[in-house]
Amino acid sequence: MTLQLLFDALSLGGIYAIAALGIALIFGVMKLVNFAHGQFIAFAVFALIVPSTDAVAVMGLGAAPALVLVPALLAVGAGLAVASEYLVFRPLRNASPVALMVASFALGVVIQNVLLVFYGGRPKAISLWPDLGKPVQLLGAEVPMLQIIVICAVLLVLALLALMLKRSRIGLEMRAAAEDFGMARLLGVRANAVIAGAFALSGALAATVALVLVAQTGVADVRMGGQIMLIAFIATVVGGMGSLPGAVAAGFAIGAASVALQAALPIEARPFRDAFLYGLVILVLLLRPQGLFASASAKPRV
């Protein structure tokens, strides 16, 4: 039971962690709270199927073998994110964070309604890798295969990302930019490349979330990225805006708190689970206003 709960927490927290990372990356380099991230996720989900307003979804890209599908979908996510950076956020580079945030929201509205026009408002079913729907025995707990894959995928993504950020030049530049963008630029960091790179990574992370979600739920809905984005957004702040490890840790923490609340609350209180969760978030912020892992740039300096 407890082991099972651990798996539940890891698989839910993992999704939040990847989504939070996608938001934190962009916030780090250009102080943009990207409200379109949820729609990036939804877009990647719908990229799997052929556009049509019919009730039955026909697999397009989703029918391809995993070796083609996964990189292609990551490329779709990255492409969408880079395109939005180029068309929307680059002209706004010097705008206030509020204007950026509202622009990202407007972008989200546009993407969502474009999806509605092309795919219709009805949720659709997607059969992605149906063989995963089998339980397996692991350390005495019967765990759905899906959950193990989700956890492994999350860990793999995090490891690859960490490696990239630590070892490659663009990764180094990104970390430097996340710490202090102005200083990094003075030291020769290529602003356009770093920002485009952060968007590409963030879009690819959104596509990863999309894949995990589809594998887990088997459905596509234009509204599906929203809830995850909200939690991820909160995780980013709780983790300390701009701190990448903080976002990951907070994503896992919120997932774990959600699972723990669901398991521990009495039945009458369970519908209020999210109210408790958000209450906890406010509490954490009051105790540690800079987040759990404040990055050096988070504090305003005089």
Binding site: L230, I234, M241, Y278, L285, L286, Q290
Partner: peptide, 14 residues
């Protein structure tokens, strides 16, 4: 700043 914004967001969701 942004922490207050997020806390107000959490308040809305609550």
């Amino acid at each position: 700043g942004i922490a207050a914004s997020i806390a107000s967001f959490a308040f809305l969701a609550m």
